[in-house]
Computed example of a mutant assay.
Amino acid sequence: MKKITVISFLLMFQINLFSQTVYNLNALTGRGDLELIGDSYKLQKEAFEAFNAMKDAAAVEGVTIEIVSSYRSFEHQKRIWKRKYKMFISKGLSPRLAIAKIIEYSTIPGTSRHHWGTDIDIIDGSVSKPKNILIEENYFDKGVYSNLKKWMDENSEKFGFYLVYTNNSSRKGFKFEPWHYSFKLLSKPMLVEFKKIDLGNLYTKIELKGYKFLTQEFLEKYNKENIFDINPNLDN
């Protein structure tokens, strides 16, 4: 894809998105009210089309970008939370420590960026899948997805996709995820609206394993470090 085509492609989205700045609670927390397209992996239309343009450009250079996770509903995220919570509790961890282990990589249901239909976890589909797919070493040095990572470093932002959880040593919250990208033109205004949600009030109404330990103090720290301490390009 020629550079001018990429620029025109993104300008088209920027023009279409100027009026789309308000999202309701259901849309922001994975409980509906989002228009999604796709088969196995769903995204909002603009993110879906931008991803396909990026995928086509990468294919020309021998890189096959494959999505392994995109939109996840609240209930999907809740199942992940429940499974991990039970696993850590069964290993003898206290509820507080179990939650601390979960939020190294996984979000509290209702707070995942994957609820927005803007974020993707990706691998290179042209190579054989290792036993563990989404681990850091796969994306560097001689890792199976190192060519994908190099291509994304050089090209992803041209298509509006930005790495979310960077390897900046001063960043707190979720650990480095070299596979997780976000379509900025949609996710940035959604983050603005998400910041207005009172999570303490939200979790008094939701049955969730360990919810009694999601205190106001915990949620304020979680918001600051896990939700908002991201690639600054996605928040300004």
Rank of each mutant, 00 (worst) to 15 (best):
L208C: 11
D141V: 05
F218D: 10
K142C: 01
N231D: 13
L185C: 03
T166D: 10
G210A: 10
D119Y: 04
K158S: 14
E177M: 14
K212F: 01
K212H: 02
E207L: 05
I133E: 14
D153F: 13
F176E: 03
F183N: 06
N167Y: 15
E137F: 07
N147F: 05
G200N: 06
I135Y: 04
D121M: 08
W179A: 15
M152T: 11
K142G: 00
E225H: 12
F161Q: 06
F218G: 09
S170T: 11
N168H: 14
D121P: 00
D153M: 10
D229R: 11
E137N: 12
N147W: 04
V164C: 06
E137R: 13
G143K: 03
D121E: 09
L219F: 07
N138S: 06
N155S: 06
K184P: 02
K188R: 15
S187N: 03
S126P: 08
K196F: 06
M152R: 05
F140L: 08
V164G: 05
D141R: 15
N201E: 15
L191I: 04
G210N: 08
D229E: 13
D229F: 15
L208D: 09
N231Y: 15
N223F: 02
L186I: 04
K188V: 06
S187Y: 00
F228S: 03
F213D: 15
I123Q: 09
K212L: 07
D141S: 11
I123A: 11
Y165K: 09
N226W: 15
R171A: 05
V127Y: 09
W151Q: 01
G143F: 03
F176P: 01
K150S: 12
I123E: 09
N138T: 04
F194C: 00
I197R: 03
T215C: 12
Y165H: 14
N155E: 07
L208F: 10
E193Y: 01
N201K: 13
